[in-house]
Nucleic acid binder design. Structure first.
Lengths: 225, 225
DNA sequence: TCGCCGGTGCGTATCTTGCTGGTGGAGGAC
DNA sequence: GTCCTCCACCAGCAAGATACGCACCGGCGA
Protein backbone atom coordinates (compact mmCIF):
# COMPACT_ATOMS: atom_id res chain seq x y z
CA UNK A 1 0.00 0.00 0.00
CA UNK A 2 1.48 3.26 -1.09
CA UNK A 3 0.84 6.50 0.79
CA UNK A 4 1.78 10.06 -0.10
CA UNK A 5 2.18 12.31 2.94
CA UNK A 6 1.99 16.05 2.30
CA UNK A 7 2.97 18.01 5.41
CA UNK A 8 5.14 21.10 5.77
CA UNK A 9 5.97 20.66 9.43
CA UNK A 10 9.17 18.61 9.24
CA UNK A 11 9.00 17.05 12.68
CA UNK A 12 5.38 15.98 12.35
CA UNK A 13 6.00 14.63 8.84
CA UNK A 14 8.96 12.53 10.01
CA UNK A 15 7.07 11.21 13.00
CA UNK A 16 4.01 10.24 11.00
CA UNK A 17 6.05 8.69 8.21
CA UNK A 18 8.00 6.57 10.69
CA UNK A 19 4.88 5.32 12.41
CA UNK A 20 3.10 4.51 9.13
CA UNK A 21 6.15 2.71 7.79
CA UNK A 22 6.19 0.74 11.00
CA UNK A 23 2.66 -0.36 10.16
CA UNK A 24 3.84 -1.67 6.82
CA UNK A 25 2.88 1.10 4.43
CA UNK A 26 5.21 2.52 1.82
CA UNK A 27 5.33 6.23 2.55
CA UNK A 28 6.59 9.11 0.41
CA UNK A 29 6.83 12.57 1.94
CA UNK A 30 6.72 16.00 0.33
CA UNK A 31 6.66 19.36 2.08
CA UNK A 32 4.83 21.77 -0.17
CA UNK A 33 1.81 21.97 -2.43
CA UNK A 34 3.62 22.31 -5.73
CA UNK A 35 5.69 19.16 -5.19
CA UNK A 36 2.60 17.33 -3.99
CA UNK A 37 0.85 18.22 -7.25
CA UNK A 38 3.81 17.06 -9.30
CA UNK A 39 4.39 13.82 -7.47
CA UNK A 40 0.72 12.87 -7.39
CA UNK A 41 0.51 13.50 -11.12
CA UNK A 42 3.53 11.35 -11.89
CA UNK A 43 2.91 8.33 -9.70
CA UNK A 44 0.11 6.22 -8.39
CA UNK A 45 -0.78 6.24 -4.72
CA UNK A 46 -3.47 4.36 -2.89
CA UNK A 47 -3.91 7.15 -0.40
CA UNK A 48 -2.88 10.78 0.04
CA UNK A 49 -2.67 12.43 3.46
CA UNK A 50 -2.91 16.12 2.81
CA UNK A 51 -2.23 19.03 5.13
CA UNK A 52 -4.23 22.10 4.15
CA UNK A 53 -1.76 24.71 5.36
CA UNK A 54 0.98 24.47 2.78
CA UNK A 55 3.59 26.77 1.28
CA UNK A 56 3.53 27.31 -2.51
CA UNK A 57 0.04 26.00 -3.11
CA UNK A 58 -2.94 25.51 -0.84
CA UNK A 59 -3.93 21.96 0.04
CA UNK A 60 -7.43 22.45 -1.32
CA UNK A 61 -5.94 23.50 -4.65
CA UNK A 62 -3.82 20.37 -4.71
CA UNK A 63 -6.96 18.34 -4.12
CA UNK A 64 -8.88 20.19 -6.79
CA UNK A 65 -6.08 19.67 -9.29
CA UNK A 66 -5.89 15.97 -8.52
CA UNK A 67 -9.59 15.42 -8.97
CA UNK A 68 -9.79 17.40 -12.15
CA UNK A 69 -7.06 15.10 -13.46
CA UNK A 70 -9.32 12.14 -12.61
CA UNK A 71 -6.93 10.97 -9.92
CA UNK A 72 -8.92 8.45 -7.94
CA UNK A 73 -6.68 8.00 -4.91
CA UNK A 74 -8.34 8.27 -1.51
CA UNK A 75 -7.57 11.53 0.29
CA UNK A 76 -7.50 12.34 4.01
CA UNK A 77 -7.25 16.00 4.86
CA UNK A 78 -5.34 17.19 7.93
CA UNK A 79 -5.70 20.65 9.31
CA UNK A 80 -5.61 22.90 12.30
CA UNK A 81 -8.56 24.89 11.03
CA UNK A 82 -11.63 23.56 12.69
CA UNK A 83 -14.35 25.57 11.00
CA UNK A 84 -17.19 23.34 9.79
CA UNK A 85 -17.45 25.19 6.48
CA UNK A 86 -13.81 24.35 5.78
CA UNK A 87 -14.44 20.70 6.36
CA UNK A 88 -17.56 20.65 4.22
CA UNK A 89 -15.68 22.36 1.43
CA UNK A 90 -12.85 19.85 1.59
CA UNK A 91 -15.21 16.90 1.57
CA UNK A 92 -17.23 18.27 -1.33
CA UNK A 93 -14.07 18.90 -3.30
CA UNK A 94 -13.46 15.19 -3.26
CA UNK A 95 -11.71 14.40 0.01
CA UNK A 96 -12.76 11.15 1.63
CA UNK A 97 -12.05 12.06 5.22
CA UNK A 98 -11.02 14.86 7.46
CA UNK A 99 -8.99 15.04 10.68
CA UNK A 100 -8.48 18.07 12.86
CA UNK A 101 -5.12 18.59 14.56
CA UNK A 102 -4.29 17.56 17.14
CA UNK A 103 -5.44 14.05 16.33
CA UNK A 104 -4.82 10.65 17.72
CA UNK A 105 -2.39 8.54 15.71
CA UNK A 106 -4.43 5.40 16.24
CA UNK A 107 -7.48 7.20 14.88
CA UNK A 108 -5.60 8.23 11.76
CA UNK A 109 -4.49 4.67 11.29
CA UNK A 110 -8.03 3.41 11.73
CA UNK A 111 -9.30 5.84 9.12
CA UNK A 112 -6.56 4.78 6.73
CA UNK A 113 -7.64 1.19 7.18
CA UNK A 114 -11.25 2.14 6.44
CA UNK A 115 -10.35 3.85 3.17
CA UNK A 116 -8.03 1.13 1.95
CA UNK A 117 -10.59 -1.51 2.88
CA UNK A 118 -13.24 0.30 0.81
CA UNK A 119 -10.97 0.58 -2.18
CA UNK A 120 -10.22 -3.11 -2.03
CA UNK A 121 -13.92 -3.90 -1.75
CA UNK A 122 -14.85 -1.84 -4.77
CA UNK A 123 -12.68 -3.77 -7.18
CA UNK A 124 -13.60 -7.36 -6.69
CA UNK A 125 -16.99 -7.62 -8.31
CA UNK A 126 -16.18 -7.78 -12.00
CA UNK A 127 -15.18 -10.55 -14.34
CA UNK A 128 -13.66 -9.75 -17.70
CA UNK A 129 -13.48 -12.00 -20.75
CA UNK A 130 -12.69 -10.99 -24.28
CA UNK A 131 -13.79 -7.41 -24.59
CA UNK A 132 -16.69 -7.94 -22.25
CA UNK A 133 -16.99 -7.49 -18.50
CA UNK A 134 -19.61 -8.90 -16.19
CA UNK A 135 -20.65 -7.05 -13.06
CA UNK A 136 -21.67 -9.48 -10.34
CA UNK A 137 -23.57 -6.96 -8.28
CA UNK A 138 -25.80 -5.64 -11.01
CA UNK A 139 -25.73 -8.89 -13.00
CA UNK A 140 -25.11 -6.99 -16.18
CA UNK A 141 -22.61 -7.10 -19.01
CA UNK A 142 -20.78 -4.23 -20.56
CA UNK A 143 -18.28 -3.64 -23.30
CA UNK A 144 -16.03 -0.60 -23.34
CA UNK A 145 -18.03 0.92 -20.55
CA UNK A 146 -21.34 0.62 -22.35
CA UNK A 147 -23.94 -1.80 -21.09
CA UNK A 148 -24.86 -4.62 -23.44
CA UNK A 149 -28.53 -4.97 -24.08
CA UNK A 150 -29.16 -8.68 -23.71
CA UNK A 151 -32.55 -10.31 -23.12
CA UNK A 152 -33.03 -12.19 -19.86
CA UNK A 153 -32.71 -15.73 -21.18
CA UNK A 154 -29.58 -15.10 -23.16
CA UNK A 155 -28.14 -13.18 -20.26
CA UNK A 156 -28.66 -16.17 -18.01
CA UNK A 157 -26.81 -18.41 -20.42
CA UNK A 158 -23.96 -15.97 -20.86
CA UNK A 159 -23.66 -15.55 -17.12
CA UNK A 160 -23.35 -19.30 -16.75
CA UNK A 161 -20.61 -19.46 -19.38
CA UNK A 162 -18.78 -16.58 -17.71
CA UNK A 163 -18.87 -18.27 -14.35
CA UNK A 164 -17.27 -21.37 -15.83
CA UNK A 165 -14.82 -19.06 -17.61
CA UNK A 166 -13.68 -20.99 -20.64
CA UNK A 167 -14.59 -24.45 -19.43
CA UNK A 168 -17.07 -26.56 -21.31
CA UNK A 169 -20.61 -26.47 -19.96
CA UNK A 170 -22.84 -29.36 -20.97
CA UNK A 171 -26.20 -28.74 -22.52
CA UNK A 172 -27.89 -30.64 -19.70
CA UNK A 173 -26.17 -28.45 -17.11
CA UNK A 174 -27.40 -25.40 -18.95
CA UNK A 175 -30.95 -26.65 -19.07
CA UNK A 176 -30.73 -27.65 -15.42
CA UNK A 177 -29.65 -24.26 -14.25
CA UNK A 178 -32.07 -22.33 -16.37
CA UNK A 179 -35.29 -24.12 -15.50
CA UNK A 180 -37.33 -24.60 -12.37
CA UNK A 181 -39.12 -27.73 -11.20
CA UNK A 182 -42.07 -27.77 -13.48
CA UNK A 183 -40.59 -26.17 -16.54
CA UNK A 184 -38.55 -27.72 -19.25
CA UNK A 185 -36.60 -26.67 -22.28
CA UNK A 186 -35.76 -28.50 -25.45
CA UNK A 187 -32.11 -28.94 -26.28
CA UNK A 188 -32.91 -27.04 -29.40
CA UNK A 189 -33.83 -23.97 -27.42
CA UNK A 190 -30.31 -23.85 -26.03
CA UNK A 191 -28.87 -23.97 -29.49
CA UNK A 192 -31.16 -21.14 -30.33
CA UNK A 193 -29.85 -18.97 -27.48
CA UNK A 194 -26.29 -19.77 -28.44
CA UNK A 195 -26.95 -18.73 -31.99
CA UNK A 196 -28.50 -15.46 -30.90
CA UNK A 197 -25.78 -14.78 -28.37
CA UNK A 198 -23.09 -15.34 -30.97
CA UNK A 199 -24.60 -12.77 -33.26
CA UNK A 200 -24.93 -10.32 -30.42
CA UNK A 201 -21.41 -10.81 -29.09
CA UNK A 202 -19.53 -10.91 -32.36
CA UNK A 203 -18.83 -7.16 -32.46
CA UNK A 204 -17.33 -7.36 -28.97
CA UNK A 205 -14.64 -9.94 -29.57
CA UNK A 206 -16.26 -12.76 -27.67
CA UNK A 207 -17.19 -16.10 -29.19
CA UNK A 208 -19.14 -19.06 -27.92
CA UNK A 209 -17.42 -22.20 -29.12
CA UNK A 210 -19.16 -25.53 -29.33
CA UNK A 211 -17.70 -28.81 -28.16
CA UNK A 212 -19.55 -31.21 -30.37
CA UNK A 213 -21.65 -33.65 -28.43
CA UNK A 214 -20.52 -32.19 -25.11
CA UNK A 215 -21.48 -28.59 -24.67
CA UNK A 216 -20.37 -25.00 -25.07
CA UNK A 217 -17.58 -22.76 -23.80
CA UNK A 218 -16.37 -19.20 -24.11
CA UNK A 219 -13.41 -18.17 -26.17
CA UNK A 220 -11.58 -14.90 -25.80
CA UNK A 221 -8.63 -13.60 -23.81
CA UNK A 222 -9.45 -13.75 -20.12
CA UNK A 223 -8.85 -10.40 -18.48
CA UNK A 224 -9.58 -9.01 -15.05
CA UNK A 225 -10.38 -10.70 -11.85
CA UNK B 1 -31.12 7.25 -2.02
CA UNK B 2 -32.24 5.32 0.97
CA UNK B 3 -30.99 5.94 4.51
CA UNK B 4 -31.64 4.01 7.73
CA UNK B 5 -31.44 6.19 10.81
CA UNK B 6 -30.92 4.34 14.11
CA UNK B 7 -31.33 6.71 17.05
CA UNK B 8 -33.12 6.21 20.36
CA UNK B 9 -33.52 9.87 21.21
CA UNK B 10 -36.91 10.59 19.62
CA UNK B 11 -36.50 14.32 19.22
CA UNK B 12 -33.09 14.08 17.61
CA UNK B 13 -34.27 11.27 15.34
CA UNK B 14 -37.26 13.26 14.17
CA UNK B 15 -35.20 16.36 13.58
CA UNK B 16 -32.53 14.57 11.59
CA UNK B 17 -35.05 12.60 9.57
CA UNK B 18 -36.92 15.76 8.65
CA UNK B 19 -33.78 17.54 7.54
CA UNK B 20 -32.54 14.60 5.52
CA UNK B 21 -35.90 14.12 3.87
CA UNK B 22 -35.84 17.78 3.02
CA UNK B 23 -32.61 17.09 1.18
CA UNK B 24 -34.34 14.45 -0.86
CA UNK B 25 -33.28 11.24 0.83
CA UNK B 26 -35.70 8.46 1.66
CA UNK B 27 -35.29 8.01 5.39
CA UNK B 28 -36.49 5.18 7.64
CA UNK B 29 -36.13 5.51 11.40
CA UNK B 30 -35.84 2.84 14.09
CA UNK B 31 -35.23 3.42 17.77
CA UNK B 32 -33.45 0.36 19.09
CA UNK B 33 -30.71 -2.05 18.17
CA UNK B 34 -32.84 -5.13 17.71
CA UNK B 35 -35.14 -3.46 15.19
CA UNK B 36 -32.14 -1.97 13.42
CA UNK B 37 -30.68 -5.44 13.03
CA UNK B 38 -33.95 -6.82 11.71
CA UNK B 39 -34.65 -4.00 9.28
CA UNK B 40 -31.11 -3.88 7.92
CA UNK B 41 -31.26 -7.62 7.33
CA UNK B 42 -34.54 -7.43 5.49
CA UNK B 43 -34.02 -4.43 3.25
CA UNK B 44 -31.32 -2.68 1.31
CA UNK B 45 -30.06 0.73 2.32
CA UNK B 46 -27.43 2.89 0.72
CA UNK B 47 -26.37 4.26 4.08
CA UNK B 48 -26.94 3.57 7.77
CA UNK B 49 -26.57 6.26 10.43
CA UNK B 50 -26.02 4.45 13.67
CA UNK B 51 -26.12 5.75 17.23
CA UNK B 52 -23.99 3.67 19.56
CA UNK B 53 -26.04 4.13 22.72
CA UNK B 54 -29.06 1.98 22.05
CA UNK B 55 -31.55 0.00 24.08
CA UNK B 56 -31.92 -3.73 23.38
CA UNK B 57 -28.65 -4.15 21.53
CA UNK B 58 -25.52 -2.06 21.37
CA UNK B 59 -24.78 -0.14 18.18
CA UNK B 60 -21.45 -1.87 17.73
CA UNK B 61 -23.19 -5.23 17.88
CA UNK B 62 -25.60 -4.12 15.19
CA UNK B 63 -22.65 -3.12 13.06
CA UNK B 64 -20.85 -6.38 13.71
CA UNK B 65 -23.94 -8.37 12.80
CA UNK B 66 -24.42 -6.40 9.58
CA UNK B 67 -20.87 -6.91 8.44
CA UNK B 68 -20.84 -10.57 9.28
CA UNK B 69 -23.88 -10.86 7.04
CA UNK B 70 -21.83 -9.25 4.27
CA UNK B 71 -23.99 -6.17 4.33
CA UNK B 72 -21.93 -3.60 2.48
CA UNK B 73 -23.99 -0.50 3.16
CA UNK B 74 -21.98 2.54 4.22
CA UNK B 75 -22.18 3.21 7.96
CA UNK B 76 -21.74 6.44 9.87
CA UNK B 77 -21.51 6.10 13.64
CA UNK B 78 -22.92 8.76 15.94
CA UNK B 79 -22.03 8.92 19.57
CA UNK B 80 -21.54 11.02 22.64
CA UNK B 81 -18.56 8.95 23.67
CA UNK B 82 -15.46 10.72 22.47
CA UNK B 83 -12.73 8.33 23.50
CA UNK B 84 -10.31 7.63 20.66
CA UNK B 85 -10.24 3.89 21.39
CA UNK B 86 -14.01 3.85 20.93
CA UNK B 87 -13.71 5.44 17.52
CA UNK B 88 -10.93 3.14 16.43
CA UNK B 89 -12.98 0.17 17.48
CA UNK B 90 -16.00 1.37 15.53
CA UNK B 91 -14.00 2.05 12.41
CA UNK B 92 -12.25 -1.29 12.57
CA UNK B 93 -15.54 -3.08 13.00
CA UNK B 94 -16.51 -1.81 9.58
CA UNK B 95 -17.87 1.68 10.05
CA UNK B 96 -16.95 4.16 7.35
CA UNK B 97 -17.12 7.28 9.40
CA UNK B 98 -17.58 8.55 12.90
CA UNK B 99 -19.15 11.72 14.27
CA UNK B 100 -19.12 12.84 17.87
CA UNK B 101 -22.16 14.58 19.30
CA UNK B 102 -22.74 17.41 19.20
CA UNK B 103 -22.03 17.63 15.49
CA UNK B 104 -22.75 20.11 12.78
CA UNK B 105 -25.63 19.15 10.48
CA UNK B 106 -23.87 20.47 7.43
CA UNK B 107 -20.89 18.31 8.26
CA UNK B 108 -23.06 15.23 8.59
CA UNK B 109 -24.58 16.01 5.22
CA UNK B 110 -21.15 16.49 3.68
CA UNK B 111 -20.01 13.14 5.03
CA UNK B 112 -23.13 11.48 3.71
CA UNK B 113 -22.35 12.90 0.30
CA UNK B 114 -18.80 11.58 0.52
CA UNK B 115 -19.97 8.07 1.29
CA UNK B 116 -22.68 8.00 -1.36
CA UNK B 117 -20.27 9.41 -3.87
CA UNK B 118 -17.69 6.78 -3.02
CA UNK B 119 -20.25 4.01 -3.35
CA UNK B 120 -20.93 5.22 -6.84
CA UNK B 121 -17.20 5.05 -7.51
CA UNK B 122 -17.05 8.79 -8.01
CA UNK B 123 -14.23 10.96 -6.84
CA UNK B 124 -15.55 14.42 -7.45
CA UNK B 125 -18.87 16.06 -6.77
CA UNK B 126 -19.84 16.57 -10.38
CA UNK B 127 -20.97 13.86 -12.71
CA UNK B 128 -21.50 14.54 -16.37
CA UNK B 129 -23.52 12.43 -18.75
CA UNK B 130 -24.49 13.40 -22.23
CA UNK B 131 -25.03 17.15 -22.09
CA UNK B 132 -26.20 17.04 -18.50
CA UNK B 133 -24.23 17.39 -15.29
CA UNK B 134 -25.29 16.44 -11.80
CA UNK B 135 -23.96 18.29 -8.80
CA UNK B 136 -23.92 16.07 -5.73
CA UNK B 137 -23.49 18.98 -3.38
CA UNK B 138 -26.66 20.75 -4.33
CA UNK B 139 -28.34 17.62 -5.71
CA UNK B 140 -29.29 19.45 -8.84
CA UNK B 141 -28.98 18.92 -12.56
CA UNK B 142 -27.90 21.40 -15.15
CA UNK B 143 -27.37 21.55 -18.87
CA UNK B 144 -25.04 24.07 -20.48
CA UNK B 145 -24.89 26.01 -17.25
CA UNK B 146 -28.63 26.31 -16.91
CA UNK B 147 -30.32 24.47 -14.06
CA UNK B 148 -32.88 21.88 -15.07
CA UNK B 149 -36.23 22.02 -13.38
CA UNK B 150 -37.23 18.47 -12.56
CA UNK B 151 -39.99 17.32 -10.18
CA UNK B 152 -38.84 15.49 -7.05
CA UNK B 153 -39.78 11.98 -8.08
CA UNK B 154 -38.20 12.16 -11.48
CA UNK B 155 -35.15 13.80 -9.95
CA UNK B 156 -34.75 10.91 -7.55
CA UNK B 157 -34.87 8.44 -10.39
CA UNK B 158 -32.44 10.40 -12.53
CA UNK B 159 -30.06 10.74 -9.62
CA UNK B 160 -30.11 6.99 -9.14
CA UNK B 161 -29.34 6.41 -12.80
CA UNK B 162 -26.48 8.91 -12.65
CA UNK B 163 -25.00 7.34 -9.55
CA UNK B 164 -24.91 3.96 -11.22
CA UNK B 165 -22.91 5.57 -14.01
CA UNK B 166 -24.55 4.06 -17.04
CA UNK B 167 -24.99 0.61 -15.59
CA UNK B 168 -28.29 -1.16 -15.76
CA UNK B 169 -30.48 -0.50 -12.73
CA UNK B 170 -33.25 -3.02 -12.15
CA UNK B 171 -36.80 -1.88 -11.66
CA UNK B 172 -36.85 -3.51 -8.24
CA UNK B 173 -33.73 -1.63 -7.21
CA UNK B 174 -35.36 1.60 -8.31
CA UNK B 175 -38.50 0.92 -6.33
CA UNK B 176 -36.39 -0.17 -3.36
CA UNK B 177 -34.37 2.97 -3.21
CA UNK B 178 -37.29 5.30 -3.78
CA UNK B 179 -39.60 3.97 -1.09
CA UNK B 180 -39.52 3.47 2.66
CA UNK B 181 -41.09 0.74 4.79
CA UNK B 182 -44.74 1.43 4.47
CA UNK B 183 -44.89 2.91 1.03
CA UNK B 184 -44.96 1.12 -2.26
CA UNK B 185 -44.81 1.89 -5.93
CA UNK B 186 -46.22 0.02 -8.86
CA UNK B 187 -43.85 -1.01 -11.61
CA UNK B 188 -46.05 1.06 -13.83
CA UNK B 189 -45.19 4.20 -11.93
CA UNK B 190 -41.52 3.69 -12.70
CA UNK B 191 -42.29 3.33 -16.38
CA UNK B 192 -44.25 6.52 -16.12
CA UNK B 193 -41.31 8.46 -14.60
CA UNK B 194 -39.02 7.07 -17.23
CA UNK B 195 -41.35 8.15 -19.95
CA UNK B 196 -41.61 11.65 -18.52
CA UNK B 197 -37.87 11.89 -17.94
CA UNK B 198 -37.18 10.88 -21.50
CA UNK B 199 -39.34 13.66 -22.86
CA UNK B 200 -37.74 16.14 -20.51
CA UNK B 201 -34.16 15.10 -21.26
CA UNK B 202 -34.46 14.67 -24.99
CA UNK B 203 -33.48 18.27 -25.80
CA UNK B 204 -30.32 17.84 -23.74
CA UNK B 205 -28.82 14.85 -25.49
CA UNK B 206 -29.44 12.36 -22.74
CA UNK B 207 -31.42 9.18 -23.20
CA UNK B 208 -32.73 6.61 -20.78
CA UNK B 209 -32.41 3.23 -22.43
CA UNK B 210 -34.46 0.26 -21.38
CA UNK B 211 -33.04 -3.22 -20.98
CA UNK B 212 -36.18 -5.22 -21.50
CA UNK B 213 -37.10 -7.39 -18.54
CA UNK B 214 -34.08 -6.14 -16.62
CA UNK B 215 -34.07 -2.43 -16.00
CA UNK B 216 -32.97 0.94 -17.26
CA UNK B 217 -29.69 2.73 -17.88
CA UNK B 218 -28.35 6.03 -19.12
CA UNK B 219 -26.89 6.49 -22.52
CA UNK B 220 -24.58 9.29 -23.49
CA UNK B 221 -20.86 9.96 -23.21
CA UNK B 222 -19.83 9.78 -19.57
CA UNK B 223 -17.59 12.61 -18.44
CA UNK B 224 -16.06 13.35 -15.08
CA UNK B 225 -16.34 11.26 -12.02
C1' DT C 1 -59.73 28.30 -8.03
C1' DC C 2 -56.13 26.93 -11.01
C1' DG C 3 -52.17 24.45 -12.20
C1' DC C 4 -48.65 21.18 -11.34
C1' DC C 5 -47.21 16.83 -9.45
C1' DG C 6 -47.77 12.05 -8.37
C1' DG C 7 -49.93 7.88 -9.37
C1' DT C 8 -53.23 4.28 -11.79
C1' DG C 9 -55.46 1.80 -15.65
C1' DC C 10 -55.59 0.33 -20.14
C1' DG C 11 -54.93 -0.32 -25.22
C1' DT C 12 -51.21 -0.72 -28.39
C1' DA C 13 -46.70 -1.49 -30.20
C1' DT C 14 -42.67 -3.95 -29.70
C1' DC C 15 -39.61 -7.49 -28.22
C1' DT C 16 -38.70 -12.05 -26.42
C1' DT C 17 -39.31 -16.83 -26.20
C1' DG C 18 -39.49 -21.44 -27.56
C1' DC C 19 -40.64 -24.49 -31.32
C1' DT C 20 -40.46 -26.55 -36.05
C1' DG C 21 -38.17 -27.82 -39.85
C1' DG C 22 -34.64 -27.62 -43.29
C1' DT C 23 -29.60 -27.25 -44.40
C1' DG C 24 -24.87 -28.07 -43.95
C1' DG C 25 -20.80 -29.82 -41.92
C1' DA C 26 -18.08 -33.03 -38.74
C1' DG C 27 -16.49 -37.27 -37.95
C1' DG C 28 -16.72 -42.32 -37.88
C1' DA C 29 -17.08 -46.75 -40.59
C1' DC C 30 -15.69 -48.99 -44.41
C1' DG D 1 -11.36 -41.33 -50.08
C1' DT D 2 -16.32 -41.93 -49.86
C1' DC D 3 -20.49 -42.48 -47.73
C1' DC D 4 -23.61 -41.93 -44.09
C1' DT D 5 -25.35 -40.52 -39.88
C1' DC D 6 -25.89 -37.40 -36.39
C1' DC D 7 -25.47 -33.02 -34.52
C1' DA D 8 -25.34 -28.12 -34.71
C1' DC D 9 -27.03 -24.11 -36.70
C1' DC D 10 -30.33 -20.79 -38.17
C1' DA D 11 -34.64 -18.85 -40.56
C1' DG D 12 -39.14 -18.22 -39.66
C1' DC D 13 -43.27 -18.17 -36.89
C1' DA D 14 -46.87 -17.87 -33.29
C1' DA D 15 -47.80 -16.88 -28.63
C1' DG D 16 -46.85 -14.55 -24.79
C1' DA D 17 -44.61 -11.00 -22.04
C1' DT D 18 -43.16 -6.39 -21.45
C1' DA D 19 -42.76 -1.51 -22.12
C1' DC D 20 -44.89 2.63 -23.66
C1' DG D 21 -47.72 6.52 -23.59
C1' DC D 22 -52.19 8.42 -23.30
C1' DA D 23 -56.10 9.56 -20.52
C1' DC D 24 -57.52 10.47 -16.21
C1' DC D 25 -57.99 11.37 -11.17
C1' DG D 26 -56.83 13.02 -6.50
C1' DG D 27 -54.10 16.06 -3.72
C1' DC D 28 -51.60 20.02 -2.57
C1' DG D 29 -49.75 24.50 -2.81
C1' DA D 30 -49.90 29.13 -5.05
Amino acid sequence: MRILLVEDNGALADGLATILRGSGYVVDVVHDGASAEAVAAAQNFDLVILDLNLPEMDGLDVLRAMRSRQNRAAVIILTARGAPEERVKGLDLGADDYLTKPFDISELEARIRVLLRRQAGMRSSQIGYGGVTFDLTSRSFSSEGRPLDIPARELGLLELLFMRAGKVVSKEAIIGSMTGFDEDLSANAIEQYVSRLRRRLQPHGLTVKSARGIGYYLEGAAAGR
